[in-house]
Design a protein around this nucleic acid. Sequence first.
DNA 1: GGCCTGTCGAACACGCTGTACAACAGAGTG
DNA 2: CACTCTGTTGTACAGCGTGTTCGACAGGCC
Lengths: 219, 219
Amino acid sequence: MLGRVLPTLARMPSITRSGPSGADRRAAVEAQILAAVGRLLAQGSTYTQISVQRILDEAGIARSTFYAHFRDKSEILSKLAETFRQRLYQFTANWSPEGPDGGLAGLENAFRQIIAFHREHFPVLATFAEVAAYDASVQDFYNSELRDFEANVVGKLRDEQAERRTPADVEAAAAARVIVWGGTRAIEQHIRADDGTGDHSFAAELARIWWYGAFRRPS
Amino acid sequence: MLGRVLPTLARMPSITRSGPSGADRRAAVEAQILAAVGRLLAQGSTYTQISVQRILDEAGIARSTFYAHFRDKSEILSKLAETFRQRLYQFTANWSPEGPDGGLAGLENAFRQIIAFHREHFPVLATFAEVAAYDASVQDFYNSELRDFEANVVGKLRDEQAERRTPADVEAAAAARVIVWGGTRAIEQHIRADDGTGDHSFAAELARIWWYGAFRRPS
DNA sequence: GGCCTGTCGAACACGCTGTACAACAGAGTG
DNA sequence: CACTCTGTTGTACAGCGTGTTCGACAGGCC
């Protein structure tokens, strides 16, 4: 540390750090790292291109401290992921094809919320998709999240088929795959391409495509 | 080279290489590199994780030779991309909503071909999507390919709306985005999850979702 | 005061990247 | 055969990033 050479400047590098206030220093370090990654992503960098070194500089944390908390760079994403778990798809999980808040109107509303959520947390959510494409540990959590969502949609389609509201020849598994994986990617792309003014009409389109394309497909 | 030390083994490492047959050695080296990458991807490795060194070992090419042909690792993908340009979306570009080979049946057939093509070249196509997420040069080519496709779909939807076959309240731009970006991702995911037996029914679902969800959405 | 826990900075080994360069091989030419 | 030209080869090198190790140190606690 500089302190050994320049005692008067001993705590200079600490100014950017929040003071250690007790036994929760551990949580503080992790929070600083996650916040720093969030800042770097918000600045437009790509997670893959950001080096650990760059994150440490941004966070004001020592290299050795980082490795005492995280096994490697992907573990940052794992911990970041816990923040998001289940929050993403609560909107559609709560939706049902029939009922007061259900149907096409309810679906459109659910998509509005999903799009708003994606837009709010875009850098981080895009990073999950980016890294899941090549990193097994991130893939585990991200894909399992989407698989849960997919299973939920399959269940809803099957229920609707049992009630004769959705045609029996709709292949629930295939349709759910298109809705979930395709929908997620489409939303991501929409947010990249649109400044937000088109969010409502995009939600309307998504809702109608899934509604008339699957749930209420003409038979 | 070994030849300097062990004359009798001079050309040993050349056995794996195709003999230089003229002035097309340049093309031969590039082909060897592309083939090696294809082999490594087929073995299940992820492009991001494969090092240049690993590619050179696999191809039996010297490091310095590689950098005489490629600026860096992403330029491999750029050259690989030229092989695929326009081949991917010729199927739907040729499709039209009306006519003998058109309509729902034609769309389903187009998707069968697209899925077969994706399955045949899966490692490479998945790599384009993987790397486009963080590498600008790959993104340029990959996204522009999909944007062309998207523009094509927008044009078809608008034409159909002009003919009153597609409802006027379908937002062509939003619908096309869902169809193209979502569809591509859904196909990729389908191929990861399905062994091929479900290809036909998946093509049928895709075709019906886009058909009844957009082109022939009930108004 | 002394102990404990956790952070810090420095150093290290390792692997990968991209460049530079001299040696070399093959083809073509006279 | 000698000679040139082009393109490949092996090696060496600088630079950067990673993950580990370790002694110094600071703050909280007894």
